[in-house]
Amino acid sequence: MSSRSSTKILVVDDALFMRTILKDILNSNGFTNILEAGDGAAAIDMYRKNKPDITTMDVNMPGTDGMQALKSIMAMDPAAKIIMVTSVEQKQIMQDAIKAGAKDYVVKPFDRAMVSAVLSKVMRGR
């Protein structure tokens, strides 16, 4: 499963706007198999059912937040490839997330080249 088009990506963010933007960036980078979840609980559920290759995880969400969802998914599948989506000032959260098993992070607002580079890196790390 090396081709981008066959890589299944789960995009988790409570804001439809952010999901849409990220989905479009992923699309234009050749990733076309994309699933979406609007909160942490839905993300855990979808991960269990669909086993995505890569998951992008927003941090601040109502209910189950990104950190909790990250931990649940890592507990379920220690090989999960999760990329945290954070804002610049959330350094502490990024570090905590990496410790908890996240593979990498991207910072909002998204930079196309950066998103693409991080995805390539995480894919290679498989």
Partner: peptide
């Protein structure tokens, strides 16, 4: 809830 909305809105506006 207020914190989260401000945060999300910030990210959206930045985008």
């Amino acid at each position: 809830s207020a914190f989260r909305s401000a945060h999300t809105l910030k990210g959206m506006a930045a985008t």
